[in-house]
């Protein structure tokens, strides 16, 4: 547990608050000292911990892979190259199975999404108190912050901003490709003339609002479910770890170990699902066949 005088709910709340840097109500940019303050900062704030870990982990991925890419031999690969080739081939076969068009962006994007999300999810396996305690120590001793107000979340995918940031990027890219491949008319037609259509022109007109409503909902539900699925799974996992951490020290392992082992599956599975959905949405954006 964190500080001794904390109540359980304070402890949980502390663990679920991001280190937020933003514009407060007086128009001053500073670190939020409480969850309340962070919330009041509204949109003009940034989660330093989520962003820091996300970019750091992304850099690990990029540096590791580009290092291997630069030294990639066509002969017998070394251990590291071999494992990275395995990942690449895994992604490549998934993309080839799901995505039936030609677009050089999709496979690298799928690789980036998979590896990045996987690494961010992996942070969930770091014991819940280690890094926040370290951050509290550093924050209070070197930056003179109130130890109770140093918030530090290390799993970026438990931050909806991170998952939604990615799923919305995918969504807008899908919109872009939809319009590029189908034309504005084709895209609008897809939204308005399905699923109900009629030979009769008048009936067709009448059906447009109904179709637009249905298709609009399904269109907007995609990025939201895409982002929130990842967020929800990881958030719930993290929550369980935090709850287990509230138990007495000598029984924690009976629950945390099985949960961590199970969570290994969740981590990989959620990264995989996120990637596959991304490929599927991109594929739908490329479908120009008549509906």
């Amino acid at each position: 547990m964190a500080a001794g005088e904390q109540t359980s709910s304070e402890y949980i709340k502390h663990h679920l608050t991001n280190l937020t840097f933003g514009k407060d109500q007086d128009g001053v940019w500073r670190l939020a000292e409480t969850a309340q303050e962070a919330q009041e900062m509204g949109f003009y704030a940034i989660h330093l911990d989520s962003m820091g870990w996300a970019i750091g982990l992304g850099l690990i991925f990029i540096i590791l892979f580009s290092m291997v890419a630069r030294k990639a031999t066509t002969g017998v690969p070394s251990g590291l190259q071999n494992s990275i080739e395995m990942i690449i081939e895994f992604i490549d076969s998934n993309v080839k199975d799901t995505f039936s068009h030609t677009n050089k962006l999709i496979a690298p994007m799928a690789l980036t999404a998979f590896m990045w999300v996987l690494l961010m999810n992996l942070m969930d396996l770091v014991p819940v108190d280690w890094v926040p305690q370290l951050a509290t120590f550093i924050g209070s001793n070197f930056f003179g912050m109130d130890p109770h107000h140093v918030y530090f979340k290390i799993v970026p995918t438990t931050d909806p901003n991170v998952t939604m940031g990615m799923s919305l990027s995918v969504f807008f890219l899908a919109l872009f490709y939809s319009i590029k491949n189908k034309g504005v008319g084709g895209f609008v037609g897809e939204l308005t003339l399905h699923p109900f259509s009629s030979k009769n022109f008048l009936v067709k007109i009448i059906l447009i609002p109904i179709n637009l409503f249905l298709e609009g909902v399904s269109l907007l539900a995609k990025p939201i479910s895409h982002g929130l699925r990842l967020f929800g799974n990881l958030y719930a996992g993290e929550m369980i770890f935090i709850l287990i951490a509230l138990l007495p020290l000598y029984v924690q392992w009976t629950l945390s170990v099985p949960w961590a082992i199970f969570h290994i599956l969740v981590i990989v599975l959620q990264a995989f699902i996120f990637m596959v959905l991304m490929i599927v949405y991109m594929n739908m954006a490329h479908e120009t066949g008549d509906h």
Binding site: N18, T20, G22, M41, G42, F43, Y44, A45, I46, H47, S50, M51, A54, I55, G58, F61, I62, F65, S66, A69, R70, I88, K104, L105, A107, P108, M109, L111, T112, A113, W116, P156, D159, N161, V162, M164, G165, M166, L168, S169
Partner: peptide, 23 residues
């Protein structure tokens, strides 16, 4: 909040880098 935008931008940069130098 802005983290959303930040994440989207970093995602774009990483994808671009991956497409250029890794894949």
């Amino acid at each position: 909040n802005l983290t959303l935008i930040g994440q989207a931008i970093s995602f774009a940069i990483f994808v671009w880098f991956c497409m250029k130098f890794v894949w």
